[in-house]
Design a protein around this nucleic acid. Structure first.
Lengths: 244, 244
DNA sequence: GGATCGTCGATTGTCAACAATGTGTCATAG
DNA sequence: CTATGACACATTGTTGACAATCGACGATCC
């Protein structure tokens, strides 16, 4: 799996100018990383010329990369006027978590009959990876490991459309979690936050699993919402902040 | 709506160069229409130079339009090799309908407490519009009216992310329905196909509504799957067929 | 002094030419 | 006749320049 490959090499090990496949894909990666890491905060303007210079590419591939990030919900644009990193809002949080509850429940429903030993072992492995990042105090990495933990269910479902939907949610979630991390230092996921989740996943009662998912999501949403409401004003109008 | 506008004036009655908003958006509209109407069948190659000439734009906006259609699942591409209209497959049908069942159930769950008279009236209105197109024998239009009928629930949910997910499903559904229509002349939706659906939607029993949705989807999926399996070979390799 | 209109700068939208890559063909050797 | 290799063609990827549009600032008029 290329995913675990990425997580081991760390978040900012950047290949500078080694076009592996297509240029646009690389820009998407790097821009997404810069946004999700908070290097370019929500609301910050994304000027095409500045970005094309920063990434050392022309505006063509860069524009296409921006379009993709728009599709992912990380970036918003208004024609002839400008492009910015998406802003945060409580309404979005409600939408993200409510839809995520539905999708993750559905994903588990698909996976339920096929929970073999490999699935169980991998779920445990990813939980231990999550705990490791928490113990290490690496909050930024713990965001990724937590997403990978939950991502397993979608991958195991074998449902491509569902995985696609999860991908769209995943980016948005990361945007909020990263902002939380940036504001409070620690986002504060507990070591045992997934214990009951795993227990239910290994059990035989699917209804219990559904309840556990709903509960897990409710807690996550409340945490995120509380954080966002504590923000002074995330809908302010930051002027500049792209260059470097 | 500009869509009905486009459908009435036909595919090649082109406004010659009246940029209303942004060029890319227009190309997306026209390309999507051409694909969903079957003018460019599944598997047909989409050559950028040919399309840019056909639509009288340069390759820049055209490429961006293609990217968007890729996101929507109507088009597939492989780097440096080519772009084609997405092919049809039974696996996709299962994914589309299973996910759609989940999403539409969720949408109804959101709408359930707010089913006021306006909602009921609009649902009836759209059903009558669907019946009108069926009676008129306009199968192509009945695809649109049926999608609009089901679309109401998503719109009424007020859930932007959910609407976005529906949008992605909608295009794919249309792709299959249009192929069905093209192959069999009539796709054959019955006049009363939504009677029980509406009855459940107006009732008080949400569990009954869930069952009705599941049943409706199951029937739709079976119809679509049966059609696709009756196709000689939809995974063949058509050579050319873009120009004109 | 306040409002309105025009102008200027900044930013995105669009275009046509050039480079990189992949695929199929055709000649050639075994 | 088959396999193999090089070559040419078709197609996408990338680039830099040019055009259209928007927002803000400042001058001007009431």
């Amino acid at each position: 799996m290329a995913i675990s490959d990425l997580s081991t090499r760390g978040v900012d090990a950047l290949f500078d100018r080694v076009p592996k496949a297509t240029l646009r894909a690389h820009i998407v990666e790097r821009l997404r990383h810069a946004i999700l890491a908070g290097d370019i905060p929500p609301g910050a303007p994304l000027v095409e010329t500045a970005l094309s210079e920063r990434f050392d590419v022309s505006r063509g591939p860069l524009r296409e990369a921006l379009r993709q990030l728009i599709e992912e919900g990380l970036v918003v644009t208004v024609p002839y006027t400008g492009t910015r990193v998406a802003e945060l809002s409580v309404d979005d949080i409600h939408e993200i978590y409510s839809l995520r509850t539905v999708l993750e429940t559905f994903a588990f429903e698909q996976v339920w009959p096929r929970r073999d030993d490999r699935f169980r072992a991998e779920l445990k492995r990813r939980n231990e990876a999550l705990i490791a990042t928490i113990d290490a105090g690496d909050d930024r990495a713990s965001i990724l490991t937590e997403l990978e933990f939950h991502g397993l269910v979608y991958e195991a479902s074998g449902h491509k459309l569902l995985q696609r939907a999860w991908h769209g949610l995943r980016g948005r979630l990361q945007l909020y979690w990263a902002a939380h991390h940036r504001a409070h230092g620690r986002r504060g996921p507990k070591r045992d936050s997934h214990d009951s989740y795993i227990k239910a996943a290994f059990g035989q009662d699917f209804e219990a699993m559904k309840a556990e998912i709903a509960d897990h999501m409710r807690r996550g949403m409340e945490t995120t919402e509380t954080f966002l409401r504590s923000m002074p004003d995330s809908s302010g109008k930051p002027k500049r902040g792209v260059k470097s």
